[in-house]
């Protein structure tokens, strides 16, 4: 690990200015991804600005019934919050399906969203990777890519975003609040579904944030239908593994039909994948397995799996069907 300077920020303005003014600087939250990348040589910041003591460590009610989650709230504290557990169970389930207890106790809300792909080639500095060094080429496209994307990939990158939290927030229409060097004393709001981007020509950019932009909070809308929501993560081990496929969903029944529905997929793309085609196919339809399957197939019609991850297409379809069936009472939770 190369030497670096460490500074503890006293307030958000100072933190943003310190990072914005130094191209080699980075914010330090729980360190569960950045610090291991520094040890691997994947990240080489020359200044870490510690933002863990900024006053962003609480979950507060918003006027109108939503919740504001401070960017510094630890994953385990957020998962244990009674309001989250009862009103947004998909969020608590997603958090608890990620990492280990020791890591959830450190990892922050903002840092979780900004964690980087676990593509083995991205983490191995001896192999070409367009995300790590643009223009080098993608080793995963013809290499080991069992965990990689089936939707929205580009010739330059087939990596997936690893966050479970981000998938739940995307399904919940959450809004990410950001303070950056361009924002003066104000903040700007970015829908969670638009925070991460597809790789396109620039896989080196995971998100729409610029250097020095600091996530300060995530706002959850009231969304009463989220009380009936769940997260299911399919993985190689029962615990402590990244998703092959995950599904976050919420359903509202109106009479005998689906009045409203939210579906987001993890483990399938460079960003949390909001399944808008499946949602559109389901609104106003009866909640049965044939409808769920048709909707899932509509969403996955454009999937372009790689040589060794074709299994993800039926796995995603079946997981969508199973989660929706569970939420609508077709099978026990």
């Amino acid at each position: 690990m190369i030497p670096f300077d460490y500074r503890r920020a006293g307030d958000a303005e100072t933190a943003v200015a310190a990072v914005a003014g130094n191209p080699g600087a980075a914010f330090l939250g729980g360190g569960t991804n950045l610090v291991d990348h520094m040890k691997l040589g994947v990240a080489e910041p020359d200044l870490l600005v510690d933002v863990t003591r900024l006053p962003f460590d609480s979950v507060d009610p918003l006027p109108g019934g939503g919740l504001r989650i401070g960017a510094g709230v630890r994953n385990s504290d957020l998962a244990a919050d009674e309001r989250v557990r009862t009103r947004y169970p998909v969020l608590a389930e997603a958090l608890l399906s990620g990492a280990s207890g020791q890591l959830r106790n450190l990892a922050t809300t903002g840092g979780n969203l900004l964690q980087r792909t676990r593509c083995g080639y991205f983490q191995d500095v001896t192999t070409p990777c367009n995300k790590r060094r643009p223009g080098e080429g993608c080793s995963a496209r013809e290499g080991y890519h069992r965990y990689h994307a089936i939707l929205g990939a580009s010739p330059h990158c087939v990596a997936v975003h690893p966050s479970d939290l981000a998938v739940a927030l995307t399904a919940l229409d959450a809004v990410v609040r950001v303070r950056g060097p361009r924002d003066g004393h104000g903040e700007r709001a970015i829908p969670a579904a638009e925070l991460h981007r597809l790789p396109g020509e620039h896989p080196e950019w995971d998100t729409v944030l610029g250097h020095g932009d600091l996530i300060t909070a995530v706002d959850l809308p009231p969304l009463p239908m989220a009380a009936r929501s769940r997260y299911r993560k399919v993985r190689d081990r029962a615990s402590y593994a990244f998703a092959l496929v995950s599904v976050a969903a919420a359903v509202e029944l109106t009479g005998d039909v689906i009045g409203d529905v939210r579906i987001a997929l993890g483990g399938v793309a460079h960003k949390p994948w909001r399944a808008t085609l499946a949602e559109a196919a389901l609104r106003g339809r009866p909640p049965d397995r044939a409808e769920f399957r048709a909707a899932a197939e509509a969403e996955l019609a454009d999937a372009q799996p790689l040589r060794d991850n074709r299994f993800k297409v039926p796995m995603a379809r079946n997981t969508i069907v199973s989660v929706l069936a569970g939420l609508t009472g077709e099978e026990p939770r």
Partner: peptide, 22 residues
């Protein structure tokens, strides 16, 4: 790298990987 848990300690009463804490 925070993967193995061998460095686990309580920090302010919750267990963490001390290798990841500056």
């Amino acid at each position: 790298q925070g993967e193995c848990g061998s460095c686990t300690v309580y920090l302010d009463d919750v267990p963490v990987c001390s290798c990841l804490v500056a």
